[in-house]
Amino acid sequence: MAGAALLAALCLGGHLLVPAGAGSSPPRAGARDIASDLRVSLPLQAYQLTPREQADADQALQLLVRSCMERAGFTWYVPAEPRPKPDPLARRYGVVERRTAERYGYHPPADKSSGEIARRRERILSEPGADVAYFGSQGAKNADRNAGKNTGRGGAGCASLAQRKLMAGADGYRGDIGAQLSWVSLEMSRKDPHVISARRDWEKCMRSRGYRYESPEKAIADPAWHLDSPVVGSRERATALADVTCKETVATVRIWSRAEGAIQRRLIRENAARLNETRRGLEAFRRTVRAVLGG
């Protein structure tokens, strides 16, 4: 379970925003406080991998896969350096960075290298016997049936062997605990009176600029943006920029993150035993990643 949760965490992207120092009754702030709005952190981050650690862990996993594949007589493509991972906090409250809104609108920033990496690995797996080496015998059969979506759990292939080796000694790390509590806190924060008021202020600001969205979530989820397409239109950029401007004007991010920070501290106290176990396992996992990268 811990390994599956970890690998899921390694694949997570997106952004989340929250400033340190959270009070239960945050004061209103004007545009002069924009910079502090964007410096964000949440208490539960202490029980999860940072974006840099996610990149290092993914690199370590692929290096272990490569060693295993080479022993089986195959190559495996691993970039020379860990690939940067997006900050998982930067889109928690929607788009908040002006430069991102101007360039990408509501689209996630483009990842130009992942497609090429996937194509290189697909070419390797098309070689006779390579899929069995990677997935394991049962996993290769499942991969055939599922068009390559198998995760290697079906047998002792290099994918599952590398995962087990990376997680060795880190049984206490349950990456799903921190993530689960994080989503709980986000849902709870939407009911906080200060957050409700801040979201209403954001809606009024957007309405004054000609945009009718009930919430930041509704704005980013507008089907008109076609987020599954790489094309970003001028209307989308303009809307996202207005969205960010309104968040700056009424201090949406500061108010929301402070409220959620208080909720997370309470959840940490209530789940101290499980989270302490998670922290110990996470430290063991970090040591293994450093050893793999150093070796």
Score class of each variant (00 low, 15 high):
Leu38Met: 15
Lys191Tyr: 14
Ser67Cys: 11
Asp37Ile: 06
Ala238Cys: 00
Val289Phe: 03
Cys205Glu: 06
Arg39Trp: 11
Ile177Gly: 01
Val132Cys: 04
Arg52Cys: 00
Asp201His: 11
Gly13Ala: 11
Val292Ala: 02
Ser137Ile: 14
Thr100Lys: 05
Lys141Thr: 00
Ala35Ser: 15
Ser137Tyr: 14
Tyr134Gly: 00
Lys85Tyr: 05
Gln48Asp: 01
Gln59Ala: 13
Asn142Met: 12
Gly210Asn: 05
Arg237Glu: 02
Asp176Gly: 01
Ala259Trp: 06
Met206Ala: 03
Lys112Ser: 12
Asp171Tyr: 07
Arg199Met: 15
Trp76Met: 04
Val231Asp: 06
Gly105Ile: 04
Glu236Val: 03
Gly3Ala: 08
Leu161Phe: 08
Asp87Leu: 01
Trp225Met: 02
Asp171Lys: 13
Leu38Pro: 02
Ala162His: 04
Ser160Cys: 07
Ala72Val: 08
Leu16Tyr: 04
Pro108Lys: 04
Ala57Gly: 10
Arg274Cys: 00
Glu203Ile: 06
Arg39Phe: 13
Gln264Leu: 03
Ala159Asp: 08
Pro128Lys: 12
Ala72Arg: 15
Gly30Tyr: 14
Ser257Asp: 07
Arg258Thr: 01
Leu186Ser: 02
Gln163Lys: 10
Lys191Pro: 00
Cys11Tyr: 14
Tyr104Arg: 00
Leu63Met: 15
Val195Gly: 02
Ala118Glu: 14
Glu203Lys: 10
Pro26Asn: 10
Ala224Ser: 01
Arg237Gln: 12
Tyr134Glu: 03
Gly233Arg: 07
Glu283Gln: 10
Arg207Glu: 10
Arg99Gly: 09
Gly233Met: 08
Val78Met: 11
Arg66Thr: 11
Gly136Leu: 07
Pro27Glu: 14
Ala159Arg: 09
Asp37Gly: 12
Pro230Ser: 00
Lys204Pro: 02
Leu275Cys: 03
Leu38Arg: 15
Leu63Phe: 11
Arg237Ile: 10
Pro223Phe: 08
Tyr173Leu: 07
Ala240Thr: 06
Leu64Trp: 06
Met69Tyr: 12
Asn271Leu: 04
Gly261Tyr: 08
Ser197Pro: 02
Leu241Thr: 04
